[in-house]
């Protein structure tokens, strides 16, 4: 990042290459749309470049990156609430549905019937995640997929650690209620040995 601060475009390209898969994943889980996630991730990197002179070496780069990402994602979600669009059901086919590689992401060699069951389960989980409020969703995604601790999440979301603790507790309770019918579902992580979150 120090090289980027000194206007090294090649270093910036390396930075984008290194961080974009994680950032796009986070954005996708927060906004729930692959194209929008990529657009937002691109905008995050452009803002990083525009603000490169303000970067302090003491700050952790990923924290700075996700702070920008958090602000952009929350703005995008608020704009969407002001101008609502009809969301496409993930189970719909078509060019804007999940990509084949996404659909196979959790394919563990299961039989076709089980695979469909897993895809349906993924859609239900995605719906449950989308049912959380924006801040809860961001906190969950950063905690679950970026392995951020409460202090890091607090820094990114510009709130206190206590507030993050409360936010995550309510988020997990909401998820538990939304997914209660699937907790003992056949093929769920608890039954087939999929990794546990903790």
């Amino acid at each position: 990042m120090l090289r980027v601060r000194d206007d090294d475009a090649e270093a910036f390209a390396e930075l984008v290459e290194l961080y974009h898969p994680r950032l796009v994943t986070v954005m996708h889980h927060v906004v729930g749309n692959a194209d929008e996630a990529e657009d937002l991730a691109q905008e995050v990197f452009l803002r990083v470049f525009r603000g490169r002179k303000k970067y302090h070496p003491k700050a952790k780069f990923s924290t700075w990156l996700y702070t920008i990402a958090n602000n952009l994602a929350l703005n995008a979600l608020r704009n969407r609430q002001r101008k609502p669009v009809v969301p496409l059901n993930l189970r719909d086919s078509g060019p804007l549905g999940p990509r084949p590689v996404e659909q196979l992401a959790k394919d563990t060699g299961a039989a076709p019937g089980e695979r469909i069951e897993q895809q349906e389960l993924a859609a239900v989980i995605q719906e449950a995640l989308a049912g959380l409020n924006e801040r809860q969703r961001v906190a969950v995604v950063l905690n679950k997929f970026e392995d951020m601790n409460y202090a890091e999440i607090a820094e990114v979301m510009e709130m206190s650690v206590k507030a993050v603790k409360s936010l995550l507790s309510r988020a997990r309770e909401n998820l538990r209620l939304a997914l209660k019918d699937y907790i003992y579902m056949e093929g769920a992580p608890s039954d087939n040995g999929a990794p546990e979150g903790n």
Binding site: A13, V16, K106, L121, I125, L129, R172, P195, N198
Partner: peptide, 26 residues
């Protein structure tokens, strides 16, 4: 129950960014 709920999030699709992402950003 809380553990299992958290574990269910592992079933979310893993998005694959487009291979030209870096190029397009630059």
């Amino acid at each position: 129950t809380l553990k299992q709920t958290w574990g269910l999030l592992d079933f979310l699709p893993k998005p694959q960014p487009s291979p030209s992402f870096t190029h397009r950003t630059m």
